[in-house]
Nucleic acid binder design. Structure first.
Length: 151
DNA sequence: GCCAACGTTGGC
DNA sequence: GCCAACGTTGGC
């Protein structure tokens, strides 16, 4: 089993949205970055554990715990001409973008990026590196355990 | 295959 | 709103 941190701007997709979904499960679609896509497509497995993170907001940080409940499949928004995430180069025969679905396990307290930066145990975390822009990053088991205990 | 231009990201 | 970083694009 692997551990991940998945980032989203709350104005686009937030923890309340996830909690309000049927079965508290949401498609992690609209990812248009190859590295993040590849994590979903090639590395995520059923049961992988996920920290749900809010970015680009007043209080960026971890807000919940979730689980990967589907393997990656083609992202429907890439085929929809009216969608802002439409990709003219993608076809159903040859899709470019993929998404998994994640299910809420529980909300956590807000663990802000500011707080995360204070723990030496976490100073290698990708999310804490300067100007990190990857929306999906792997988390070390030791880091996962540490954060789980404080959240 | 290079690389300049451009667009996006995200903490502050 | 700023701005540094960096991924993507496309002309050559």
């Amino acid at each position: 089993m692997r551990y991940w941190l998945m980032k989203s701007e709350p104005s686009k997709r937030n923890l309340d949205d996830l909690a309000a979904m049927p079965n508290q499960t949401i498609a992690w679609d609209r990812v248009r970055n190859y590295q993040s896509r590849n994590f979903m497509r090639h590395q995520m497995r059923l049961g992988d554990q996920v920290f749900f993170y809010h970015s680009c907001c007043a209080q960026p940080g971890i807000v919940g715990l979730a689980e990967v409940v589907t393997l990656a499949y083609p992202d429907a928004t890439q085929f929809d001409r009216d969608n802002r995430y439409y990709d003219p180069k993608a076809t159903p025969e040859n899709p470019r973008w993929f998404n998994v679905e994640i299910k809420l396990i529980k909300r956590t307290r807000l663990v802000t990026i500011k707080e995360l930066r204070q723990y030496p145990e976490l100073n290698k975390m990708k999310i804490l590196q300067v100007r990190n822009r990857l929306s999906i990053t792997p988390i070390d088991p030791a880091e996962w355990k540490f954060i789980l205990e404080i959240c």
